[in-house]
Design a protein around this nucleic acid. Structure first.
Lengths: 147, 147
DNA sequence: TAATACTCTATAAAAACGGTAGAGATTGTG
DNA sequence: CACAATCTCTACCGTTTTTATAGAGTATTA
């Protein structure tokens, strides 16, 4: 039930961009800055952001003063969406996935299918409802509490 | 968020043993039979069952008429327990795992920690509550419905 | 004692993971 | 225009994990 490093980096990067977005309205940020701030290998982060751009979560600008920013408001991007792009379906097994269903080899229903469907729903219920705007606000609250 | 093949096989095997257990009260079953019935590579299944024995979920008998059976009633074995034995902690990231916590490298709390903790709770809420007795009964109900 | 069935160790191919390198394309600035 | 900054794209690479398989050894019992 693991989140890969790649997925973790993706979430941190989008969260970082979201906070910048909310703060300055569509601020453009270079890969290097995100990489440094979130401690993510720069080249690795490049490929992650590129994937997120291709599916329309991020947008990029090349050349001097280029960089990445969100393609939509953070209230409109969920954690589940980002994880699916980077790590694939949330469902523990393919035969209960809604986003990438693969037919079950077992005739009728194998015994574990229904419990796995419950897990998929439980995960989706958290991740598909959590937006990056909400996460930013949570983080901001946590930081205030620390001071 | 994947369940490995090994985890899937473990669940199917324990479920199979549970149904046998409930039906005949502690019936001993050979690896070969489970392997054949559930379509699991026999040698692979051997190592899985051995692991489940070592943690006290199963018990085994050697020699003629030997085989595996549950070490406890199926009402007393949860899906979460079996998955943890075979696949490790349920938590998506180590820093929110209760069963195998590893400290977070990031000072304070990184932004994604709280949502990952929610996911861990959501998964645990399904898998640690679901017993194999319940699964057997569900399966039995499903099979009846098919006839 | 012979057949059966679990136990243990070793091995291995394939896939996934985590990361790196470098050439190329695009853009803004002086 | 030249050039520096920045994303884009392709390819690669080492390690770990996954998914097994092989075979010798041990215990049991008929």
């Amino acid at each position: 039930m693991k989140l890969s490093k790649k997925g973790e980096y993706a979430l941190k990067a989008v969260l970082y961009l979201s906070c910048r977005y909310l703060h300055g309205q569509k601020e453009i940020v270079q890969i290097h800055e995100i990489s440094k701030h979130e401690q993510i290998p720069e080249k690795f982060l490049q490929s992650i952001l590129l994937s997120l751009k291709k599916v329309g979560v991020l947008e990029s600008h090349r050349g001097v003063n280029g960089g990445y920013t969100l393609n939509r408001p953070p209230a409109n991007i969920t954690v589940g969406e980002v994880i699916r792009v980077i790590d694939g379906p949330l469902a523990p097994v393919g035969c209960v996935s809604k986003s990438a269903h693969v037919p079950c080899m077992v005739q009728n229903r194998c015994g574990i299918q229904s419990v796995m469907a419950e897990v998929r729903d439980a995960i989706s219920n958290v991740l598909d409802k959590m937006t990056f705007e909400e996460m930013c606000k949570k983080m901001y609250g946590a930081k205030l509490a620390l001071t």
